[in-house]
Amino acid sequence: MSLKNILENWSNYRRDREAGGHHEYEHMWGMAIDLNKCIGCNACAVACYAENNLAIVGKEKMTKKQGMHWMRIERYWGEPDLDKLSQSSSQYQEHGANFLPMMCQQCNAATCEPVCPVAATFHTPDGLNAQVYNRCIGSRYCSNNCPYRLRYFNFYSYYESSWPAPLHLQLNPDLSVRDKGVMEKCTFCIQRIRVAKDKARMEDRVEKEAAVIKVGDSTFRAAAGRGKLEDMEFQTACQQTCPTGAIVFGDMLNPESQVRKLWDGHQVSLGKTKQTKQNPEKRGYRVFEALNTDPCVMYMERVREV
């Protein structure tokens, strides 16, 4: 460890901080979810468990809200019809649930990032909100500051209880199994992104020129040498599994991508706290965008027949 090395590290650190994080993006991964198409089947959640080595915590801990479901299907009912409810023995109405699949919204102004004491969660040049498991010390501040409550903590060591032999053989080798005391959350299947990016580089599909790309109200400087990925070249596990194709995932910096077209079509843009739509019929919205978290997931409202 030389003094020169340390000073260099420090000046690198300072430069990154003063520049306000990454100024050169490679991608800006985003999602669009059509709630009209969502049937609440939970297949996406199951796929996420399989893909991302999520611990199965059991019924008791699940009801205690200690579950590890990175992708969760939230159910909301409208005003309950009390007459009908009193006749049936069920606690919930049979019909009329609204489903909201929620996964980490990969906010561009994430509230979890500035509060982490050890910088275990930070913004990547892919526009993702990365979580470094090895760096996490489990102060859980990020989760307390997440308005969506989409971060999950390993309250126990689940390795033995969740994957008793031979189930451990079905673990995804592309990512780690997290131990107790670590925060985790949806990564937009970063292991698949990684594979696709590496493949593009190996096949020499790279953008030679840096570019300035405008997405809605935000302007992104795209770095030279970024991979040139086809739209839908790879899919996230939830998108791949959704039987109705409600989930669309892709690169927002690619003007030809399906997700970008959906965002533009619904007149929803990044970098806003309130969308200004020319056509109020458009169904797109982002959750809690008034909090200025700038999430990268757009939902398309469900329309019901009255």
Partner: peptide, 17 residues
């Protein structure tokens, strides 16, 4: 890790936290 000790890997705590 919360303390800003000098590390050859150049990893510092998050001073914004």
């Amino acid at each position: 890790w919360v303390l800003p000790y000098v590390s050859d890997r150049g990893i510092w705590p998050n001073f914004r936290s």
